[in-house]
C-alpha cells in the first residue's frame, strides 16, 4: 500500500487543495447556508428578528390559497410554454440560419442580440408595444382588420403574452446552441442520405433531429429551469397582474417579502426548489436515458 506521507507530499506540491477555498467559502456562506436555512425558516412565522415555529402552515397555504395555487400552476405553464417554443423555434431558426440563406450573419446577429439586452428594458418596451389601444402591435393588427386582444390587461391572456416576450428575448440563445449542435453533424451523413434517396424533409427527421439531441437536452434544461425561476420579465411587465393572473412563484416570493411575510416568502423558495427538483431531475434523467439508447 502507498505510504501516506509520500502521497501527501506529491499532492500538496502540484495541485493545492486550498485553491478550492475562496470559491468554497463564498459559495458555502452565501449560497449553501441560506439554502439550508430556508428549510427551517419556511416552517416559521418570521420577522427577521424573531421566528416562531408553525410547522407546515406556510406550505398548506401554498396549496390552499387560490392565488398561491394559481402562481404555482402559472409557473409550470410559463416554463412549459417558453421552453417548448424555444426548442421548436430555436431548431427551425438554426436550420434556417445554417442553410445557404442571404445575409446569414445579419440574421444570426439580429436573432441573438435580444439575449444580451436588459430584461427590464425589454419588458417595458413590450408593455408599451402591447398597449391595448395605442400599442404598435394592435395598431398594426387593426390595419389588416384584426381587433387585437388586450395582451396584458386580459387576465386570461397576460401570462401568455409575457411568455411570448420571454421567447422573443430567449430564442436567440436556443438558436445559437442548436447552430453549434448542427454544425457538429458531419456533412457525410446528409450526403450519404441523399445518395440513398432521402428528401430534405426526411433528412431533417432522420438525421438532423436525432443528431441534434444533445443541443435539445441543453435547450430544454436551460430554458425550463430559467422559466421556472422567471421573475424580472414578469415584474417589469405585469407585476403578476391583472389580479394574480400572471403571478409566478418567483413574483410571489417578492410580494410576500415586501409584505413582511418572510416565512411564507421563504416557503415559496422551498416550493420552487422542490418543484425544480421534481420536474427537472426526472426530465434530464429521461432525456439522457433516451440518449443512451440510441
Amino acid at each position: 500500500m502507498a505510504n501516506p506521507t509520500s502521497r501527501a507530499y506529491a499532492r500538496r506540491s502540484t495541485y493545492p487543495g486550498w485553491f478550492f477555498l475562496p470559491a468554497a467559502i463564498i459559495y458555502g456562506v452565501l449560497f449553501l447556508v441560506p439554502t439550508f436555512a430556508s428549510l427551517y425558516f419556511s416552517l416559521t412565522r418570521w420577522s427577521l428578528f424573531s421566528s416562531e415555529f408553525i410547522g407546515l402552515t406556510n406550505f398548506y397555504q401554498f396549496f390552499e390559497e387560490p392565488f398561491l395555487v394559481q402562481g404555482l400552476v402559472n409557473t409550470v405553464i410559463f416554463a412549459m410554454i417558453t421552453s417548448g417554443l424555444k426548442v421548436v423555434l430555436g431548431l427551425l431558426l438554426a436550420v434556417l440560419l445554417t442553410s445557404r440563406i442571404a445575409l446569414r450573419g445579419y440574421l444570426r446577429s439580429v436573432v441573438f442580440f435580444p439575449v444580451l439586452v436588459s430584461t427590464v428594458g425589454v419588458g417595458i418596451t413590450f408593455t408599451v408595444l402591447m398597449h391595448p389601444t395605442q400599442g404598435a402591435i394592435n395598431v398594426a393588427l387593426e390595419l389588416v382588420g384584426i381587433d387585437g386582444p388586450h395582451w396584458l390587461t386580459n387576465p386570461s391572456l397576460a401570462l401568455y403574452s409575457v411568455a411570448l416576450v420571454d421567447v422573443w428575448k430567449g430564442v436567440g440563445l436556443a438558436t445559437v446552441i442548436y447552430i453549434a449542435g448542427l454544425v457538429a453533424i458531419p456533412k457525410d451523413y446528409y450526403e450519404a442520405a441523399r445518395i440513398d434517396g432521402s428528401t430534405p424533409t426526411q433528412s431533417f427527421f432522420y438525421i438532423t433531429l436525432p443528431l441534434s439531441r444533445p443541443a435539445t437536452v441543453t435547450v430544454i434544461t436551460l430554458s425550463f429551469i430559467g422559466g421556472l425561476k422567471t421573475f424580472d420579465l414578469i415584474w417589469a411587465m405585469t407585476r403578476g397582474g391583472p389580479g394574480f393572473s400572471s403571478d409566478t412563484i418567483a413574483s410571489i416570493i417578492y410580494k410576500q417579502y415586501q409584505a413582511g411575510f418572510y416565512g411564507l416568502s421563504t416557503a415559496g423558495n422551498v416550493v420552487l426548489f422542490v418543484l425544480i427538483a421534481l420536474l427537472v431531475v426526472p426530465l434530464t434523467m429521461y432525456l439522457n436515458r433516451r440518449e443512451g439508447h440510441e
Partner: peptide, 21 residues
C-alpha cells in the same frame, strides 16, 4: 519526482531523494 515512491529508496548523487522536490 513527478510520481511519489510507494516503497523503497531513491538515491541521486549520494543523496536520498524520495521526498526531494
Amino acid at each position: 519526482g513527478l510520481e511519489d515512491i510507494s516503497a523503497g529508496e531513491l538515491w541521486i548523487a549520494g543523496k536520498k531523494c524520495n521526498h526531494v522536490e
